[in-house]
Amino acid sequence: MTTTRIDPTIFDALPLGRDPVSVRRRIEAMERLLERSFTLPGTNRPVGLDFIVGLVPVVGDAITALMGSYIVWEARNLGLSKWQLARMMGNVGFDAALGLIPFVGDAADFFFRSNTRNLRIIRRHLDRHHPGATVIEG
């Protein structure tokens, strides 16, 4: 049987520094919270607050768009290019716009993971420009 509890280790000892390693850990924690913090029973598909809170019309999508914008703000502080930041804001905006459509937006949150896409952009940047911030995942 699959549990639907949130993983309590998501925010354990998150660093407060402005160095690339600290920023990467905070961004990864936010992405995990928004996209992969729960597992839906019967589907074994991870979902997060983006899907759950997005079920609340308008307000839920606004809240998750603000939380996704935090990831873009952290990326700006890392020095990503304007093109990368525009792509990231486009992902957040597209996700928020889809969320405004009843039922379709809820299904889209299940498949279109804007925060995961944004994390991928940030990881590529960090791997290229800050190789010391690379984390080997086991």
Rank of each mutant, 00 (worst) to 15 (best):
Thr4Cys: 03
Thr4Tyr: 02
Thr4Gly: 04
Arg5Glu: 05
Arg5Tyr: 06
Asp7Met: 05
Pro8Gly: 12
Thr9Phe: 09
Ile10Asp: 01
Phe11Trp: 11
Phe11Tyr: 11
Phe11Pro: 06
Asp12Gln: 06
Asp12Ser: 07
Ala13Thr: 10
Leu14Tyr: 10
Gly17Trp: 03
Arg18Pro: 06
Arg18Val: 13
Arg18Asp: 15
Pro20Gly: 03
Val21Phe: 01
Val23Ile: 15
Arg25Met: 12
Arg25Ile: 07
Ile27Ser: 00
Glu28Asp: 14
Ala29Cys: 10
Met30Asn: 03
Glu31Gln: 11
Glu31Pro: 05
Glu31Ala: 10
Arg32Lys: 13
Glu35Phe: 02
Glu35Val: 03
Glu35Pro: 00
Ser37Asn: 02
Thr39Asp: 00
Thr39Glu: 01
Pro41Met: 03
Gly42Ile: 05
Gly42Trp: 05
Asn44Ile: 03
Asn44Asp: 13
Arg45Leu: 08
Arg45Asp: 07
Val47Lys: 03
Val47Trp: 00
Gly48Ala: 04
Gly48Asp: 02
Asp50Arg: 03
Phe51Ile: 06
Phe51Trp: 09
Phe51Asn: 02
Ile52Lys: 05
Val53Gly: 04
Leu55Met: 14
Pro57Lys: 10
Val58Ala: 12
Gly60Glu: 02
Asp61Glu: 13
Asp61Trp: 02
Ala62Arg: 03
Thr64Cys: 13
Ala65Asp: 04
Leu66Ile: 12
Leu66Gln: 14
Met67Ala: 15
Ser69Thr: 08
Ser69Ile: 01
Ile71Ser: 01
Ala75Gln: 05
Ala75Trp: 00
Ala75His: 00
Arg76Tyr: 15
Arg76His: 15
Arg76Gly: 15
Asn77Tyr: 13
Leu78Ile: 05
Leu78Gln: 00
Gly79His: 14
Leu80His: 01
Leu80Ser: 01
Ser81Val: 08
Ser81Tyr: 09
Ser81Trp: 08
Gln84Pro: 05
Gln84Gly: 07
Gln84Asn: 12
Leu85Cys: 14
Leu85Thr: 07
Ala86Asn: 12
Ala86Ile: 09
Arg87Ala: 05
Asn91Trp: 06
Val92Met: 14
Asp95Phe: 02
Asp95Val: 02
Ala96Trp: 05
Ala96Met: 14
Ala96Lys: 03
Ala96Gly: 09
Ala96Val: 10
Ala97Trp: 13
Ala97Phe: 13
Leu98Trp: 09
Leu98Lys: 06
Ile101Glu: 13
Ile101Asp: 13
Phe103Ser: 11
Val104Gln: 10
Val104Glu: 10
Gly105Pro: 05
Gly105Trp: 00
Gly105Gln: 08
Ala108Glu: 11
Phe110Ile: 09
Phe111Cys: 09
Phe112Asn: 02
Arg113Asp: 06
Thr116Cys: 06
Asn118Val: 04
Asn118Trp: 02
Leu119Gln: 00
Leu119His: 01
Arg120Ser: 08
Arg120Asp: 06
Ile121Arg: 07
Ile121Met: 11
Ile122Thr: 01
Arg123Lys: 13
His125Pro: 01
Asp127Leu: 11
Asp127Ala: 15
Arg128Tyr: 07
His129Cys: 08
His130Asp: 09
His130Thr: 07
Pro131Leu: 11
Pro131Arg: 09
Gly132Cys: 11
Ala133Asn: 09
Thr134Cys: 07
Val135His: 10
Val135Glu: 15
Ile136Gln: 13
Glu137Gln: 14
Glu137Cys: 12
Gly138Thr: 11
Gly138Ser: 12
